[in-house]
Design a protein around this nucleic acid. Structure first.
Lengths: 202, 202
DNA sequence: CCAAAACGTGGTAGTGACTACCATTCAGGT
DNA sequence: ACCTGAATGGTAGTCACTACCACGTTTTGG
């Protein structure tokens, strides 16, 4: 999904980003987030501190950066309307999770990296706060995407339902990370939805 | 509810806290959060920057400090068990909101201050992130408080349900702030729960 | 009632995240 | 080949926050 303009500059750019982020997550995991300075990350990646800030506006973005959110929003917007909102969102989330992590046992390299990032997001207070705010931004994006021209009251109901769905997702993600990714994520999401919404989930 | 030990030192201490926080919220509202330095708050309150940090460990706490969370957790723990979790939490939240803001029209001075803080929490990214993390901490407190000795699976379901409830609460709070407190908060919470959970809300 | 302990407050000097502002180098399109 | 623009690096500065220490006042215990 990330387009590859294949121009040399763009390829190098994404490659540097990948390099910096990989070293950052590694160092944060080894030494701790607060005990690792941005300068350390830059040094490990072989670039100047300036370059780190060019690619990642804040230290937190070194862990949080990722494009999973966009995928989710698009999938929900593309899902067939008519069904109750909670079921639409739940189904889209389960599908997106299946695609990202696989429903079976083996974890891809991307999956392991996502897991490492998630662990940091859950345990480090500053990262957890920013991650929750990102989820809130995703909520806004979802509500905007599926706004069928209803009035403010409809939008309010959509906000409430979407927020509750994303909270259930978050619970599933936390459990998945605590389990080191051994339990399949789609199943956890389904369980979380069942616990929160009872009869109106896949 | 906050005990008054009535010893001179304690009274002075809470008074300085109140003073600093009041000036902070005022300045943040007038000039903006990022454009206001902690030094400015200290100067306005007539204390040294050091004293500000003594009472409020971070700049964000100047807005976020408050003991509403504890009230909510206690109320939920005290609610009668047996009913479905979502209904228990919803009822407790509506009651707590009624007590804090009143169900009628007039807004108390405390209510107006709470509204000003809430507006800052919603509009300022850094504060919004920390606020969402505080809600997440409240979720943990609630789950711990009503842990009836179930297994890990029960705890997982409680996490999912509680998180969804607090997301609905947050939606109601945002709407309340956007309305400048004109719509009664308990009713908004009830509506948000109805939108998210359908038939299982007050 | 008077000491000693505890607390609230202020100063100084630091660390670390982040932000201008500017110079240099090199890929991309014409 | 030339010029535009992007990517990187350096310097200096702001601001949140943290020791570490000193001084005065309130509280406490004999």
């Amino acid at each position: 999904m990330p387009e590859q303009p294949s121009t040399l500059r763009a390829r190098r750019r994404t490659e540097t980003q990948r390099l910096i982020q990989a070293h950052a997550v590694r160092l944060f995991t080894e030494r701790g987030y607060d005990a690792t300075a941005v300068t350390d990350v830059a040094e490990a990646a072989g670039v100047s501190p300036m370059t780190v800030y060019r690619h990642f506006p804040t230290k937190e973005d070194l862990v949080l950066a990722g494009q999973e959110a966009r995928l989710v929003a698009e999938r929900i917007a593309a899902s067939p309307a008519g069904r109750p909102l909670v079921r639409r969102i739940g189904l889209a989330l389960v599908e997106a999770a299946t695609e990202s992590t696989g429903s079976g046992e083996g974890l891809t390299a991307d999956g392991r990296f996502l897991l490492a990032r998630l662990r940091l997001m859950i345990t480090t207070p500053a990262l957890r706060a920013r991650h929750l705010d990102n989820q809130y931004a995703l909520q806004q994006a979802i509500v905007t995407a599926l706004d069928d021209g209803g009035d403010g009251h409809d939008a309010f109901r959509a906000q409430a339902a979407t927020g509750a769905c994303l909270a259930a997702l978050h619970t599933a993600l936390v459990r998945w990370a605590e389990d080191d990714g051994r339990t399949a994520l789609p199943g956890l999401i389904t369980e979380a939805f069942a616990a929160a919404f009872g009869g109106q989930a896949p």
